[in-house]
């Protein structure tokens, strides 16, 4: 089998699996959990490109998630625009902000970059909370209209699940294209050594900015999907802890791995649902699991589980 055929098979498998789950899941609750996993995967996917491939950390990515959500909320609910018109505007708004913030911020490196993005995230959060005439303030923004295509209402559980996972699949394809392209190789060069990359003629600043803007746009897309699904947004959803959760999804899933982003997002979305039974112990168990996964599988779940599988197979073959 050629590599491209192999990939084709994998995508076909993924597509049919999504379709299968969509048909098999009869309980709207399961569909909703899957929808949130899809939205979170989208967030992790964009951030993974920035962190895993370009090696730049962002501790303020929830801001772009929020910008996407608030832009579409304001345009559709306050100004009555069609969501399909507000979609490109929400994404463009986040991309523009990312461009303006990224230009000075991406000159920083390491923890200083982390701090710079964190500061930006905090400022964005305060703007969401304090600009109450426009954003609804701390109590939140109500009445965001559902999505529809002509007579087809997308807001029902199954349709929205297909929409989110369809968008996710397209985003995965786009990311794969980027990673396998000349740009992707240049990104990995930056990840390994920024100076070496610059020496061989990679325009590092330009490239970092591009990836930053792209990942912000993906986060805004996720924000758009979240806003029209829940139909209510409040600043708390886009706070510092969300930014940290996004980074955690990427690292737990496995950096520089597209499936890792999905695995990480799934784990962090499902874990609280499973841990309900522990009630007050939930936080302790959650923290322990997070530490445990990272201690046992410092490369993330994808790599870690594959290693386990390989080891088991070796033992079996022997």
């Amino acid at each position: 089998m050629t590599p491209s055929l192999k990939k084709g098979v994998a995508y076909a498998l993924a597509c049919s699996a999504i379709a299968g789950i969509g048909l098999a899941a009869t309980n709207p609750y399961h569909l909703q959990v899957m929808t949130f996993i899809g939205i979170n995967s989208l967030l992790a996917l964009g951030l993974n490109l920035l962190m895993g491939y370009a090696g730049q950390i962002s501790l303020g990515h929830a801001a772009f998630y929020g910008i996407g959500a608030y832009t579409t909320a304001i345009l559709t609910a306050t100004y009555g625009l069609s969501p399909w018109l507000s979609l490109p505007m929400a994404v463009a708004a986040a991309a523009l902000v990312a461009f303006l913030v990224g230009m000075p911020t991406l000159k920083l490196s390491g923890y200083y970059l982390g701090m710079g993005t964190l500061g930006f995230g905090m400022i964005a959060f305060i703007v969401f909370r304090e600009w109450d005439g426009v954003t609804g303030g701390a109590s939140g923004f109500v009445g965001i209209p559902p999505l529809a295509v002509g007579p087809l209402n997308l807001s029902s559980g199954r349709n929205y699940f297909y929409l989110v996972w369809g968008v996710l699949l397209v985003a995965i394809l786009v990311c794969r294209r980027i990673i396998d392209s000349r740009t992707g190789r240049a990104l990995r060069a930056i990840h390994d050594s920024e100076n070496a990359a610059r020496a061989v003629g990679v325009g590092t600043m330009h490239l970092k900015l591009q990836v930053f803007v792209f990942s912000a746009a993906v986060a805004a897309l996720a924000g758009f999907l979240y806003a029209h699904y829940v139909s209510f947004i409040s600043p708390g959803t886009f706070d510092f802890l969300m930014s940290v959760r996004m980074v955690t999804m990427v690292v737990i899933g496995g950096m520089a791995s597209i499936w890792g982003a999905i695995l990480g997002a799934s784990l962090l979305t499902l874990l609280p649902e499973w841990l309900h039974a522990f009630s007050d112990l939930e936080m302790v168990v959650y923290g322990l699991i997070m530490m445990g996964v990272m201690i046992v599988m410092p490369q993330g779940l994808t790599r870690g589980i594959l290693d386990l599988y390989e080891r088991a197979r070796e033992r079996h073959e022997r």
Binding site: Y286, G287, M291
Partner: peptide, 9 residues
């Protein structure tokens, strides 16, 4: 991330 886990714990 381990320290983030520890903070939750």
């Amino acid at each position: 991330i381990i320290t983030v886990g520890a903070s939750i714990f």
